[in-house]
Amino acid sequence: MTSFMLTDTTASKISSQLTHLRHQLGSPAVGMVLTLVVLCDEGSQYDAVRAATEAAREHPSRILVVITRGADEPNRLDAELRVGESTPGEVILLRLYGELTRHADSVVSPLLLTDTPVVAWWPGESPEVPAEDPVGALAQRRIVDARAATPSVRAIASRARAYVPGDTDLAWTRLTPWRSLLAAAFDQPVGKVKRGLVEGSPDHSSAPLLAAWLGERLGAPMKVAESGGPGLTAVRLTTAEGDIVISRSDARLATLSRPGQPNRQVALTRRPTAELLAEELRRLDPDEVYEAAIRRVARTHKS
């Protein structure tokens, strides 16, 4: 890996340095498919970059990491460029000081790859309306993570009010294996579901989303209950014939039980952030099913 530091610099200097580095490595045209802008602070930077670089194995990207530093200091832009072995694309860490922290878009915009999608990701705290954030407005897809907010259910409800097509949430992405398994369970005849219960660790950000999705699709009331965790531990759906239950206590292997049939074990592992991110980058069109779920959370949370 080649790494290069630039202090007190500008976007155009970064850009020409990148071109120079690429020529030096002998790969002037790499097949990068998108720009991923990561907006985070110094503390969460390491994990976020790691996850983004791993996701870039599946989706070669230019990764722009925007790190906000002291807003009281004099205006300054520091950059760290990483090109080469660890990732098929490029990683650029941008550290913003002073008034520049409010104008991140002026640095990000000239560094975006031409004519390819832009994805913005807030691994930690995110703006109230991501689509109106100066950097968020540059992106076609905006990824937040309700897990970072407390209480998460209020954060999800407020997302519904701020929703613009292209918004998405890693708390929703975490549910895909659960939803896939539930959908597979319904590939066999199931009677009308009367009510349901989702259990998860206290203030689990994905639990209300799963309950809302099930409620929306099954037309039945759903409740969320707390359990000892880790993560989501069970989904219980009551039908006239009995309960369909998926339970998981070790965050790895789940048990599916349904009336009149023996229990079956199914692998249901919690996925690392890199895999969640890779799933998000796979499809860049608006997720209407997510929209329906957060709108339902907003409705039920109010009442």
């Binding site: 992405t173 895909t176 939803r179 959908a183 319904f186 099954l218 499809r283 209407e288 099913v289």
Partner: peptide, 9 residues
């Protein structure tokens, strides 16, 4: 009921 053509995940 849990499958939806729009649900591409």
């Amino acid at each position: 009921p849990l499958r939806d053509p729009r649900d591409k995940r």
